[in-house]
Amino acid sequence: MQKLIKFSGLLLGMLCLLSLFSCRTLSHSKTGYFTGEVDKYFNEKEGVNVWLYRAFQPREDGKTGLRKENYYPLDERMMELVGIKKNANQVLFSVVPEYPPFYNMVAVKHLKNNVNLKGYNIREYKGANYYEKKVISEGMDIRHVYIPKGKKEGLSLLYYALEVENAGNPLAKFDYLAGINALEIKEKERYYPSWQIYDCEEPDRRDWILKPDIEKLKNHEVVYLKLYDVYGANKTISFFKLMKKDDRGPISLKLCPNEYILEYYSEKDLLIGQEKFRVN
């Protein structure tokens, strides 16, 4: 059992303890990080990165957004329908896109191989295999994807949407995430705290040493380091690193010739400071 649902009032609390099994629920990982603009979730303790969409936004309430601490109303019921167990698993996040087509997706890290794959179909994306099961229940289209990770662990991606939402083809969005995450797990055996994209060809990229300002970092346990390419009045993110207190040294990377703005954000996505530079 991971967690007891806390009821208000002593009597309800005692009833919960007496009926322990019915009060069990999957717990959320407390060590994950996600920020807007970057299409990746980071969790060093669980040793996992999860590809997402840049349009997702971190938000713990409302009808849309990526939640790291709370469920959407039907999440637990859908997990139960596909057989995601309440022990030896950690919920990483639950998300609903900001824009249509709307659907729900829940990511679960399996601490051991406890998924019964009977009835699942094997899918393949660029040489990476994963398992998928389809369930239709009460007008809901439900898909459970299981991606093995090493010999014992795994990652579940649970999709569900009203069948009437299928006109916008939300399933194609989910299928793409399932595929690229299976490929990520196959190709990368360890966790990475950074993310980068380029707008120039490899021969044009320059070696660069990024030296974060220690003064901007010292009062924060976690800092989101975001590097933007500047195009006139516009800017586009091209590099991100999740920086913790034990990882504040220079960063070696390659950058395209351009103007840049380096911005420092707190874990709550509040701007701490910024600086500008140019790569020739």
Rank of each mutant, 00 (worst) to 15 (best):
S94P: 09
M78H: 05
K133F: 05
I180T: 13
V145Y: 12
G273E: 06
T236S: 10
L262I: 03
K276G: 02
G273Y: 04
I84C: 06
Y130C: 07
I197Q: 00
I261D: 10
I142Y: 01
I197Y: 00
D229P: 01
V222R: 11
E263R: 15
K235Q: 08
R59H: 11
L217H: 05
E201S: 12
C16A: 15
A233S: 15
K112N: 12
D61L: 00
V95I: 14
D39L: 04
V96T: 07
K245F: 02
V82I: 15
Y131D: 09
L11F: 14
R143W: 06
E153T: 04
E138Q: 04
N169T: 07
W195H: 12
L162K: 15
A172V: 01
P73A: 13
Y265S: 03
I147C: 12
D175M: 13
G154V: 01
V145N: 04
L242F: 05
L227M: 00
V91A: 05
S8G: 05
I185P: 07
S22W: 11
M140H: 09
T31S: 12
D246L: 12
L155K: 05
V106L: 13
I5P: 00
M140C: 01
R77H: 10
Y99A: 11
R24H: 14
H144C: 08
M105R: 07
L52G: 12
L271M: 08
G32P: 07
G9H: 08
E259R: 07
L270N: 13
K226H: 13
Y198K: 11
E46V: 03
V115N: 02
N169M: 05
H220R: 13
P100I: 13
I5M: 11
R205S: 02
A128Y: 10
Y125C: 02
G127W: 09
N169P: 02
Y192R: 04
E259H: 02
L171S: 07
P203V: 11
W51D: 11
G62Q: 08
K216F: 09
V82A: 10
C23D: 09
P212S: 03
R248E: 01
L17A: 14
K211I: 14
R24L: 15
A172Q: 10
D39K: 09
